[in-house]
Write a protein that binds this DNA or RNA. Structure first.
Lengths: 187, 187
DNA sequence: ACCTGAACACCGTTCAAGT
DNA sequence: ACCTGAACACCGTTCAAGT
């Protein structure tokens, strides 16, 4: 039989991807296995391989889905760049809080995301321009800034920011953004 | 027989740890398995469990060994703090270049290292003091700085700094340290 | 075209049995 | 005290066989 164990539908890529993402949200990337995913979909483990090349390809897919969930505020060129930079950093932080394990995975597996894809960079560049960062330094500055904020999240996830007091992590994050704003290269 | 397959010696903790670290240096943390480690030591896989509680305990041990390899320059209070901060950052970077995979592992597995252990912090605090960072902000600033540099390394490892030109990664690192120096909180 | 079971080559770890 | 083999419960993935 061609669609036996499963209810009706013949196992769409979307269903696979969203179920996989759910497993990751619940138990981290290490909780995702092809066999558990198949069980969650009520399907034979091997059926998955007709829709997904392999496990790493699947993870790459759910990473891209995650990246699309960065909830950027609408562009508001009227606001000062400091404010927009702060808001962007907070959006990034919210995303990491939502998918901590998957986010870590991406940043330890360079191969899954290549280049400046995702809406974040389109928001960041105009901010840097308004901040007066010279054109020829903007790419480098953007990479460094992303690194800074990513490292902050790494540290927060390690519990190094505010071990006892949870509000301390928020405060440290603000301090960090202040440092970044002060430190930006000016002409 | 009690020491059969192995040559003479009865399998010391040091031997286990150093061999495990070698496997990690060669193939990353994902290349370390209890069974491969046993093979490298020419021993039955189960023998390891008489010297090591389990795999995570073993990894924690080799992480601590790695942390001890941070080659700090001797303290030179005569030099300006900017210079000392830069040197410390470079020592950190060298360590990450030497153990990229293990370093990533630590920063994605918060449980393996807890608190400010390791000589780095003893070097960092006096630098921050000389930089004029107020006493009550030093802990937070130190955590943020560590986060910044760690994030930089993460980004570098992802290839985001200087994809084509390898010297660009060096330049981006210097730019980043400049930003940090400019951005430090002052009284 | 899509699904499946058996199989292969791996894991970490437990446990009873050996010396 | 230290080592070991067999076993358990997992992996990802291939492949030939089913409908």
């Amino acid at each position: 039989m061609a669609v036996s164990a499963r209810r009706g539908a013949p196992l769409t890529p979307e269903e696979i991807c969203s179920t996989a993402l759910r497993l990751v949200e619940e138990g981290g990337v290490e909780a995702l296995s092809m066999r558990k995913l198949a069980a969650a979909l009520d399907v034979n483990p091997m059926s998955l391989y007709h829709h997904v090349e392999n496990k790493t390809a699947l993870i790459t897919q759910i990473c891209q889905t995650m990246a699309r969930r960065l909830d950027l505020l609408p562009e508001r060129p009227g606001l000062p760049w400091q404010r927009r930079l702060r808001d962007l950093a907070h959006a990034y932080r919210r995303l990491v809080h939502r998918y901590p394990s998957l986010w870590s995975y991406i940043h330890t597996h360079p191969e899954v995301i290549s280049g400046h894809q995702g809406g974040m960079w389109d928001v960041l560049y105009p901010i840097l321009a308004d901040a007066g960062v010279p054109q020829e330094e903007r790419t480098r500055t953007a990479d460094v800034l992303h690194g800074f904020v990513a490292g902050l999240m790494l540290t927060e996830r390690q519990g190094a920011l505010g071990r006892e007091d949870p509000a301390e992590a928020d405060r440290a994050f603000e301090t960090a953004i202040d440092m970044i704003i002060r430190g930006l290269p000016r002409p």
